[in-house]
Design a protein around this nucleic acid. Structure first.
Length: 227
DNA sequence: AATGGAGGCAACCGCACAGCG
DNA sequence: ACGCTGTGCGGTTGCCTCCAT
């Protein structure tokens, strides 16, 4: 971009009620998407990302505001144990809650309560996500992108040539061995495609979260589909 | 009443990925 | 094949409020 356009100074910081109103009205009229142009078209001096975040986390319909219920807290703890810092996935199981809210709640309330081993695992700075990406996954409620023809695998993984030494696979393996629920263990490494596994994960997550399979949501002996 | 530390939370940042031209 | 754009995600920052002193 040689001739860089002089961008007007974008506004930062807390959103004012009038800005919320403008954004809300705009999205209700024109729909979500094209966030980069929203600020300009709506007359907001905000970045597209800022608009998107504000809408997603606070202005969207069906957002549940206010404190977490005991059930929600419990569910977050259980889901975090299962899924780690995959806030969007966790938030996807909590109707009306957003990833940001869940993440903040975890960091401020729950992280400190949990015993050491269960606390948030920080990403190793020498081994960041570029190198060992977690598989992208779709929150169930998701208004997300019409996902990935490859179901969340990276290109590398998709071409089938990847070694399976990804740390998240190790995580999944240790996670599966950590709990005594009747999930079959894979003795050999496998490609974890959580889009495909999601139906099973859902049952499993529910099973693990609610501690019961009375309703047979999680069926003993259930095998994830072979890829 | 003043102030400083801690906690909570909203928002920003940087990166990855998908889609498109 | 490549670059650009739009979007999603997780980590981090910084402001605000509360409370103890």
């Amino acid at each position: 971009m040689g001739t860089k356009e002089v961008m007007p100074q974008l506004k930062k910081g807390l959103w004012k009620p009038e800005e919320d109103l403008i954004l809300k009205k705009y999205v209700e009229t024109y729909g979500e998407g094209k966030w980069a142009t929203v600020s300009h078209r709506a007359g907001l001096m905000r970045g597209g990302k800022s608009c998107r975040l504000r809408w997603k986390n606070y202005l969207r319909p069906n957002i549940k505001l206010g404190g977490m219920s005991e059930d929600e807290k419990d569910l977050i703890i259980r889901l975090h144990k299962l899924l780690g810092n995959r806030w969007s996935l966790i938030a996807g199981r909590l109707p009306g809650r957003t990833d940001n809210e869940v993440k903040n709640y975890w960091n401020t309330h729950l992280n400190k309560k949990c015993p050491r081993g269960e606390r948030t695992r920080r990403i190793d700075p020498n081994n960041n996500r570029n190198k060992t990406p977690l598989p992208r996954s779709e929150p169930i409620h998701s208004e997300n992108k019409k996902n990935s023809s490859n179901g969340g695998l990276t290109k590398e993984e998709d071409n089938g040539s990847t070694t399976v030494s990804h740390s998240w696979i190790e995580d999944m393996k240790s996670f599966f061995s950590d709990i005594k629920s009747p999930l079959p263990m894979y003795s050999e490494p496998f490609f974890y495609n959580d889009e495909i596994l999601m139906p099973m994960m859902d049952n499993y997550v529910l099973f693990e979260a609610f501690g019961t399979n009375e309703d047979q949501t999680f069926q003993e002996g259930m095998l994830p589909p072979r890829l």
